[in-house]
Simulated scan of single mutants.
Amino acid sequence: MGLLKKLNFFVEEDIRKELDELVPAGQKSKIINEALRKELLRIRRKTVTEKLALLKSKGPKVSQKEIVKLLKQDRNRKT
Rank of each mutant, 00 (worst) to 15 (best):
K30V: 13
G2M: 08
F10N: 14
N76Y: 02
L41I: 02
L3D: 14
I43D: 01
M1R: 09
V68K: 11
L4S: 13
D14C: 05
Q64I: 10
L4H: 08
R16S: 12
R77N: 08
L19N: 03
V23W: 02
L19D: 01
V11W: 06
I67Q: 03
K6N: 10
A25K: 15
K56G: 06
L36F: 10
T49Q: 05
L36T: 04
T49R: 07
I31R: 04
F10W: 11
V48Y: 04
I43V: 13
V23G: 00
I31L: 12
K51R: 12
E18T: 14
R42I: 03
R75H: 03
L4W: 07
T47K: 12
R45A: 05
V62E: 02
S63A: 01
N76T: 05
P24G: 11
E21S: 14
P24V: 06
E18L: 15
K5I: 12
P60E: 09
N8C: 08
E13L: 09
K61Q: 03
L19W: 07
D20W: 11
D20S: 12
I15S: 04
V68S: 09
A35N: 00
L70I: 09
P60T: 05
E13D: 15
L71Q: 09
R44E: 13
V68E: 11
N8K: 14
L41K: 09
